[in-house]
Amino acid sequence: MKVAGALLVAIVVAALLLPPLLPWGYAAIDWNAVRAPAFSPGHLLGTDSVGRDLLARTLAGTRVTLAVATAAALVALVIGTAWGATAGWFGGRIDEAMMRVVDALYALPFMFVVIVLMVVFGRSVLLVFLGIGAVEWLTMARVVRGQVLALRNRPFILASEAAGAPARAILTGHILPNIASVAIAYLMLTVPQVVMVESFLSFLGLGVQEPLTSLGILVHDGADDMDIAPLTLIVPGFVLVATVVCLNRLGEGLRARMAR
């Protein structure tokens, strides 16, 4: 977990702070160095098929991917917690109806739903993360609902009711603090999910649009060009995989710690 945390921090810090220090911007074209190999002057990792610096592009793509993922995961957290907590708190018919909706949505090919949304409303970064967040909240809703349902019948909640606490006080004083840790752990696990979805969409050309770039677009471009410049595939692919592995490990570790 420590290694994962350190590597993740390194990736995030590099993506945020390093780009201004590089000689070339992520969209700037160096006409003198098309498909330059690694360690060329000014291009540590070489350039792509139109002469753009691979390191700068990878960092920029990482930044966009992480930003979209974090925003989408937060959307998922808000919707999921609200939905799950409401269902768990009221229980009975309301719970059943609300969870039916979640079950039904679970059964959908959610990637296709996002694609349909992209097709219908056009492609924009805002829509990418709204759309992804709107389908990624399902797991969160299930987890939160399960937690609330279990808490609802715990004696300390009953004792709180006997102590005259109104529903609002029970929710904010007992329920939310007790589900916060689990919700945060699942938030950590939602981020890598979203990273994958965003990259997937971008890879297909349905996500982030040029001139903005993301890890998915870079992998796609790299795949087109890999026989000549394999680094253009390997570098963004490695950063993507490393980021997801680290996020998963952190989330799992956090969840295991919370479960105790």
Binding site: S199, F200, V241, V244, V245, N248
Partner: peptide, 22 residues
């Protein structure tokens, strides 16, 4: 398995093509 989970097919696919095909 932790690494495999994080290996999206759109990364593995081209990489496999690169290594085993090309």
């Amino acid at each position: 398995s932790a690494v495999a989970v994080a290996l999206p097919s759109f990364v593995t696919g081209p990489l496999l093509v690169l290594v085993f095909g090309l």
